[in-house]
Design a protein around this nucleic acid. Structure first.
Length: 866
RNA sequence: GCGGACGUGGUGGAACUGGUAGACACACAGGACUUAAAAUCCUGAGAGGGAAACCUCGUGGGGGUUCGAGUCCCCCCGUCCGCACCA
């Protein structure tokens, strides 16, 4: 019979329809088996999926399908992170309404995802821009507000003075508005915050328990939270305005107080601003500091600069010691208290500053190996350990004891009615500002009343929906200038009042969607029975770019939801996996213009490898391998690949070769290799199926010879692939499948009527199914089954078959491999040693040397020391 | 500057707690089939030497521990990522 090619595009549609009709992947809370919640980070509906999505969702799908086969009750949902600026940009550029644009994109992307054959429960689909979703978000906000997890305070925003609009950070390019090109100003605006800092310590501590998270992500979060131990020190000021008689300063090194030579304030410190009112030069200095951009290179190249205020601060341990007080550009207002004391000998920044302004540099911590009398600090501050010197009551102490003593002394002294200082723990983490002055986001459900102040929208009035009749032809917030939307009666007094026109940061939307998926149509944000059953997410998969903000916010939100009774867990994601990016080579023509990969042909290899333009034959320069991006023209559209090769091919390629956490390089040759394998696997099954169909599927235990060898290979493969998939080592699972198919292809013609063949083919199909689900169904059908492979339980490896009776071990002489030895697995050490010494190559290598020692590691190695 | 990851053939990568380095794939070369091509199948291959059996070298570089090191320790080089004046 002539072999027919597997027609992927046609058969994939067929199987997708069948899965769909049977609602195979609909999750239920009452099903049997332990639950397993697999989630991939939901996409922003940009309109088209890209290779990153394909990689991400393929991995998640393999996990979901494998867990399902292993008997777990799996939840694997999908939704849309649908609010955000691109929709507003589209509205401005093309006059299409953000909602219309977004929903059209969702439809297009849903179709593309469905074409990938993902085992998703589409009945749980949610879009964050849907009022049915965001009304619950508003409700959560109000509940958080009632539980003191929301604050209203001022914060800086990027203000475009030409467009009269607030800009997001990514809209500020080189300090200028992306649209107007005008220099961006910092403006103080009253905004809403989630008080994530209340959980700072808990969010930090709990990282230790997240043992199924990548260490790298935990470190990043730890650094972001940035806990430090130190002290608050209150300096008495001389010559300052009355309300600034005391200057609080945060330091991690109160032990070095005797090395202090100045104090410094942030340019935007209240005291700096107050002094500037009567000091024009200071005002100019502050303005200059604020003008210095916040871009990385600005900070890096900025010189330490200061302005002497003329005030002095009294040293806490010596009333006769006065320190000059500067305003300095390197002091940050939003860390600590916005003021520092400078100890140049033991802090590099302070040292740079002191050298510039000729301030004293007194070492007070002396390294153990240095001589206290002569130890000096040059261009480098000494931040290491040592003994205190030049420090009166601290002299001779080590750093740790000195810290304690200094703090104890500060706590015992008074400045005015307060203590001079106290132990203090500080965090880098700041409260999460959630106000965005934009249209396409979830409205913040608050009302401003002249008489009652800021009032909540009553829960019964939720959702506060976005008005549809908005215009984007002028800059600024459309909600702000809408003729009537913000007009509302005050819920408290009934007087005319105004709605809050800010909307939520879109990170809010994605901070609880995993909880919503548990009960996507519930009247509550989350039905407790559902979240209690499904949460936490057992395996969360996404890009590292969300290692900090999204994951930290989601962790906060989960705690806040639990605090307000909406959930019962502290941590949302028990397991996290961050997958690498999809890269592609870049190509440029002689003029330096980017060239599409589809327009070139690669020739040669190694040093002679080069590219030519298909159309003109012109030489094309092969550039570096970079993340796929439109600007570099090195993207490949998944839809094209699916149309040409089918979903299984693209899935298989995404899982092959590269370890999932690392970047993968997209190559045309790689895809073709994957496609060839699809055909090869189909051919193997197709050709063996008629014979196999005659055989019962239960192998005879009495198998021997080639049949037994095949059974061993089958069970070894089951063993390794199970382990590979459990550990998300997809590339190794792929390699093991290849290896097994190679073995099976060789064995099949000889074992036409043996049950071992049947066992091998069936199990191969089941194991391939999570990775190439459509082809697996096709093979399963061809093998004569009337069930779906998606419903088959995962095979169990027979432990008797995964170990061989004999082992081949290497024999070394003086650490160099000289021969190998095949011997009974359970052979006695002495027998192994004797057999090894008897090998020709071994005897030759020993020569006339004397055997000093023979190391025998059973089942591993023999090493003869001569 | 601080923190982290990584470095293995022409390429992507295997190698579990130290135990036959290069599995598997891609690319390549030779062969079979074909009028021819595609597809497919078989074979070869880390480098150097040798007709071969084999030998020598070899996991970024240099030291060390060990019977034995890609794996552990120290120093250096390179690439990538995160944070960045955080007191």
């Amino acid at each position: 019979m002539a072999h027919e090619r597997y027609n992927a595009p046609v058969r994939e549609k067929h199987w997708q329809k069948i899965w769909d009709e049977r609602q195979l992947f609909a999750a239920r809370e009452d099903a049997d088996g332990a639950k397993y919640y697999v989630l991939e980070m939901f996409p922003y509906p940009s309109g088209r999926i890209h290779m990153g999505h394909v990689r991400n969702y393929t991995m998640g799908d393999v996990v979901a399908r494998a867990k399902r086969a292993q008997g777990f009750n799996v939840l694997h949902p999908m939704g849309w992170d649908a609010f955000g600026m691109p929709a507003e940009n589209a509205a401005m550029e093309r006059g299409v309404h953000p909602a219309e644009w977004t929903y059209a994109n969702i439809d297009a992307m849903r179709g593309q995802l469905k074409a990938l054959g993902l085992s998703l429960d589409w009945s749980r689909e949610i879009a964050t821009c849907d009022p049915d979703y965001y009304r619950h978000e508003q409700r959560l906000f109000l509940d958080f507000l009632d539980n003191d997890l929301v604050a209203r305070k001022t914060a800086k925003v990027n203000w475009d003075p030409v467009d009269h609009t607030v800009l997001a950070n990514e809209q500020v390019i080189d300090g200028k508005g992306w649209r107007s090109g005008a220099p961006v100003e910092q403006r103080e605006l009253t905004q809403w915050f989630f008080t994530i800092t209340k959980y700072a310590n808990e969010l930090l501590q709990a990282l230790d328990g997240l043992d199924r998270w990548p260490e790298k992500v935990r470190i990043m979060q730890r650094n972001w939270i940035g806990k430090s131990h130190g002290a608050l020190v209150r300096f008495e000021l001389n010559g300052a305005p009355d309300d600034h008689a005391v200057l609080p300063v945060y330091t991690t090194r109160p032990d070095t107080l005797f090395g202090a030579s100045f104090c410094a304030l942030a340019p935007d410190h209240p005291l700096s601003l107050s002094l500037a009112e009567s000091d024009e030069k200071l005002g100019a200095f502050i303005e200059e500091c604020q003008r210095t951009g916040t871009s990385e290179e600005d900070i890096e190249t900025a010189e330490k600069q200061g302005y002497d205020t003329g005030l002095t601060a009294t040293h806490p341990f010596d009333p006769n010691w006065q320190l000059p007080v500067y305003v300095a550009n390197f002091v940050l207002m939003d860390y600590g208290t916005g003021a520092i004391f400078g100890c140049p000998a033991h802090d590099q920044r302070d040292l740079d500053f002191a050298r510039k302004y000729k301030l004293p540099v007194t070492p007070v911590v002396i390294p153990a190996e240095a001589d206290p009398a002569s130890f000096e600090v040059g261009d480098e501050a000494y931040i290491g350990d040592g003994r205190l010197a030049n420090s009166k009551f601290l002299d001779g102490l080590d750093v740790d004891s000195a810290l304690d003593s200094a703090i104890a002394r500060l706590e015992s002294q008074q400045v005015g009615r307060e203590r001079q200082g106290e132990r203090r723990t500080n965090f880098r983490l700041r409260d999460w500002g959630i106000s965005r002055q934009r249209y396409w986001g979830c409205p913040i459900p608050m009302i401003h009343c002249d008489d009652c102040g800021v009032v909540q929208v009553p829960r019964a009035d939720l959702p506060v929906t976005l008005p549809e009749d908005v215009t984007f032809d002028t800059p600024g917030n459309p909600l702000e200038r809408h003729p009537s939307w913000k007009d509302v009666a005050c819920p408290a007094c009934g007087k005319d009042a105004r709605r809050e026109t800010d909307t939520f940061d879109t990170f809010v939307d994605s901070s609880w969607y995993f909880a919503r998926f548990c009960s996507p149509r519930s009247d509550e944000p989350a039905a407790r029975n559902a979240v209690d059953y499904w949460l936490p997410v057992d395996q969360y998969i996404g890009g590292v770019e969300h290692a900090i903000l999204h994951l930290l916010y989601a962790r906060f939100f989960t705690r806040a939801m639990t605090a307000t009774g909406h959930a019962g867990v502290e941590e949302p994601f028990a397991g996290l996996f961050t997958q690498g990016m999809v890269n592609h080579e870049t190509y440029r023509d002689a003029e330096g213009g980017w060239v599409n990969p589809a327009d070139i042909r690669l020739e040669g290899e190694g040093k002679s490898r080069h590219a030519v333009a298909i159309e003109t034959g012109a030489e094309i320069e092969i550039g570096p391998i970079e993340k796929m991006s439109k600007s570099k023209h090195n993207t490949v559209d998944p839809e094209d690949i699916i149309a040409r090769y089918g979903a299984d091919t693209i899935r298989w390629f995404m899982l092959s070769d590269s370890p999932p956490e690392r970047d993968v390089q997209w190559t045309e040759a790689g895809v073709e290799g994957a496609w060839r394998f699809v055909q090869r696997l189909w051919r193997l099954i197709d050709e063996a199926a008629d014979g196999a169909a005659q055989i019962g599927s239960v192998p005879e235990n009495a198998s021997e010879g080639p049949a037994l060898d095949l059974r061993r290979a089958t069970h070894k493969t089951i063993h390794s692939i199970s382990a590979d998939l459990d550990a998300l080592r997809f590339n190794r699972a792929v390699a093991h499948i290849y290896e097994f198919v190679n073995t099976l292809t060789a064995a099949a013609p000889k074992l036409k009527s043996d049950a071992a063949l049947r066992e091998a083919l069936d199990n191969l199909t089941i194991m391939v199914a999570p990775m190439m689900p459509h082809l697996a169904e096709e093979c399963w059908l061809r093998l004569g089954h009337d069930t779906l492979v998606a419903d088959q339980p995962w095979p169990q490896a027979d432990s008797a078959l995964i170990v061989d009776d004999t082992v081949t071990i290497a024999v070394q002489v003086n650490g160099k491999r000289r021969d190998e030895l095949t011997i009974a697995r359970d052979a006695a050490k002495e027998d192994v040693e004797a057999a090894a010494l008897n090998l020709d190559n071994v005897m030759k290598a020993i020569g006339d040397k004397k055997v000093k020692k023979v190391i025998v590691v059973p089942q591993r190695i023999v090493n003869v020391v001569a």
